[in-house]
Design a protein around this nucleic acid. Structure first.
Lengths: 346, 346
DNA sequence: CTGAAAGCGCTTACAG
DNA sequence: CTGAAAGCGCTTACAG
């Protein structure tokens, strides 16, 4: 049933050369005369010979595969942004002739899950891995880096950690927060609340700091009462905002959410309280989630170009796999204000 | 830098047994006494030994990886439904200890793309593959099946093709169309238009047939003028509907779209013409796209449980890889009406 | 119950 | 420019 597998010995015999020469042709070594090369190529084409991958790996070649690890407790299939990041990486890798092994990590404390992930590296199923959604300090990632595996990380800031096999990409959180606050202040808002994110992730504290700085830069005071603690998720944004609405004395005129998902949740909670956006209160997000332009009201936000961000990360990882990198790689991607309908001028 | 790789010879030496025995322990052969097993396991644990995957493959084991091939011309990362299907498969496979290699096929006529896909099978990178979005008859898929590879296919109906290595899953298009028409007729609609899908895909003609049957069952006439040819995409639905609106004499009271994406496009085109849904015209979709409940007006539709559908397909494929299947596998998943706000009673 | 040995299919120094 | 041979690390009949 299966196509009768042909191997390099057979090809060599049919072409009247040795396996060494077949291998040299396959691997495009320069020291093969054109005539020999063509002779061998003809046989290869004729029999549609494809070298056995496992044998190549055992002889020291690359797998041409990268691992993609999404750390996420919820059901990933329902998170649009996560889904998009996955396909971005796949497309980018595919463009460069690489395959992507995707794995979803539900719980980074689950030993069995960790074992599977580590095994992926140890078995050499992959030449390197990309981690998305991890805490700023994640033991699993640090272990893989210590062991020398090449790792790409989205959203991490670990001062002093600049191993050559660590590739990090961040968005410019402080500039993004600044842009958002400039926009809100430009609309004459002075009473601004902030929905914060998971403090364990890198972007959480960074955005919070950015908020404090931006407010200070505009000479505005930050009311503790107007700091709403959430966790980047829609549900978290909803619950935190609903809770906050029960106790808050005086409402701000605007809410700056740590990301769009949290803003969706807040929108929901505000709606339940009968508060209209932007008539009663303005709402600004961060990310430019795929849904943001489609919800009612269309959400104003700070856009991050996730697509080119993941492309850059994937490209750099593959480059480091193929050519080796001896310098640490860090990138910061820009942000951009997208004004839609969720913020009104006072 | 890299962890000093330890191999089975070393483990055998440290445990005072032969490699054969180590292998027997690893592979959980029954004929190893508990004491020997434990002795070996202790060494394995101590050195965190993981067998080399490529060596295992060469010795005849499974890769424990399935390929996922998305056939899609557009930028997949922007298609929510596609993204969701990808993560469904990943989650399902992961649950069973399998890895997923995802690949996006832009153009099934591009020889280079085809070569890469076939290579994935030939190199034995994967133990089987799942194809989504292919034409009903896709030479690439047929070739892989002919060569004996195990293949899972979403949405295919090829009479007489029932090789044991072909696993097919379909949604119940005719029943779904029937449910939709029952609903519309129940709302007293009699003038019903249909936006059709890509005729090369399996679901295209099936839904069209279903529409014709359903209309006949209700004693309603199908006006040629009210058959709008599109292709399952939002853009296609938009363009076809916009064009149709320019020429149509008398408007129907309802439009049944071949899927939700097409319905989104139609909604857009209707809006541009100043036609309100459902006030001026009712609109019914098919799929229950992730956005359907969130758009304005929330789209009534025929739901397919994509998640359990992909889970079933993945499960069956993995089962067939591990235990072999000698009977062809075909599944049909049910449909369910979800009434929201886009259809009004007359 | 267990070990020695063959076999899987490549790549790459090495020697010429 | 090219071939013979070693080496990669497993599994599994085979023999005992």
């Amino acid at each position: 049933m299966k196509k009768p597998e042909i191997n390099s010995i057979e090809i060599a015999r049919l072409a009247g050369v040795s396996r060494s020469t077949v291998s040299r042709v396959i691997n495009q070594y320069p020291n093969v005369p054109a005539t020999t090369r063509e002779k061998v190529m003809r046989v290869i084409e004729k029999y549609q010979y494809v070298p056995n991958l496992s044998a190549q790996i055992m002889a020291g070649k690359n797998m041409r595969t990268i691992g993609l690890f999404m750390i996420s407790s919820g059901l990933v299939s329902s998170d649009l942004l996560t889904n998009m990041l996955i396909t971005c990486v796949i497309e980018s890798a595919s463009l460069r002739g690489y395959y992507v092994l995707t794995h979803i990590i539900r719980n980074t404390r689950d030993q069995e899950e960790l074992r599977v992930v580590k095994e992926t590296f140890h078995q050499k199923r992959i030449d390197g891995g990309i981690f998305i959604g991890a805490a700023n300090y994640e033991p699993l990632i640090e272990e893989m880096i210590m062991e020398g595996y090449r790792v790409g990380i989205v959203d991490q800031n670990l001062p002093g950690s600049d191993e050559a096999n660590r590739i990090v990409i961040n968005f410019d959180n402080s500039r993004g927060m600044q842009q958002g606050l400039d926009y809100l202040v430009g609309l004459n808002h002075r009473d601004i609340a902030f929905i914060s994110g998971d403090p364990l992730r890198c972007a959480g504290p960074e955005k919070y700091e950015g908020f404090l700085h931006g407010m200070a830069a505009h000479g505005l005071v930050v009311h503790n009462e107007w700091i709403i603690s959430a966790d980047f998720s829609e549900e978290g944004g909803y619950l935190a905002t609903a809770e906050w609405l029960k106790t808050v004395d005086k409402l701000p005129t605007a809410i700056f959410a740590v990301n769009d998902s949290a803003a969706f949740g807040a929108l929901h909670a505000l709606g339940e309280k009968g508060l209209k956006v932007p008539e009663d209160i303005s709402l600004l997000g961060f990310d430019d989630h795929i849904l943001s332009s489609r919800i009612q009201p269309a959400l104003s936000t700070i856009r991050i170009d996730f697509s080119s961000m993941m492309d850059k990360l994937t490209e750099t990882l593959i480059e480091s796999i193929e050519h080796g990198l001896n310098r640490p790689s860090r990138f910061v991607v820009g942000t951009e204000l997208v004004a839609r309908d969720s913020c009104k001028a006072l």
